[in-house]
């Protein structure tokens, strides 16, 4: 049985996700998203991956959330207020999500007997992750660096073109 900490983290994560999507004010949504991602980071801590967890916080809360809030502020307030959700669409969405959840539940129930319930002892440190990244996964790292710089360039270009038109 899951303990209190786990349940609380689950509540924060899933609740944050729901707030992110359903809050009336989109800034609350952004904060909710940040909370949800923070909760996921807490799960990473729980899974003995502190490095990934801190990385997740740094990137998502430190960068992505700031970007999102910034974007929200660049777009006029009335635009967000026009947001309408049709009740039929919502029903369809809930049903589909439920279908996914149910099927995943079945899958998990079916395989739970074969899955280990106790984690194997972990010896992975961030040093080893660093070694792995810089040796055998170095091509991936380089490609990632390219993708990142390309996306930054793309973002800057988009913004810049706009400024010229103004």
């Amino acid at each position: 049985m899951a303990d209190i900490v786990f349940l609380a983290m689950m509540a924060v994560t899933v609740g944050g996700a729901i707030v992110a999507l359903e809050s009336r004010e989109i800034v609350y949504g952004a904060v909710g998203l940040a909370g949800s991602l923070f909760g996921v980071a807490a799960f990473f801590f729980l899974l003995d991956a502190p490095y990934v967890a801190v990385f997740q916080i740094t990137v998502y809360v430190g960068a992505v959330a700031v970007l999102i809030i910034f974007t929200v502020m660049l777009v006029r307030h009335e635009t967000w207020m026009k947001e309408v959700t049709y009740s039929l669409g919502r029903l369809v969405g809930i049903l589909t999500a439920a279908a996914i959840a149910v099927s995943l539940t079945f899958a998990w129930a079916a395989s739970s007997s074969q899955l280990p319930s106790v984690p194997v002892p972990s010896t992975v440190t961030f040093l080893q992750i660093g070694q792995l990244i810089s040796t055998s996964l170095s091509p991936a790292l380089e490609v990632l660096a390219l993708v990142l710089s390309a996306s930054v360039l793309a973002a800057i270009t988009l913004a810049k073109v706009e400024r010229e038109e103004d």
Binding site: M10, T13, V14, A17, I18, A20, L21, S36, V40, T85, G89, R90, V92, G93, I94, T96, A97, A98, I100, A101, L104, T105, W108
Partner: peptide, 14 residues
């Protein structure tokens, strides 16, 4: 799975 379902819901509805 829950998070994924919520994400799917959001993509469909919003």
């Amino acid at each position: 799975g829950l998070l994924f379902a919520v994400g799917i819901y959001g993509l469909i509805v919003k």
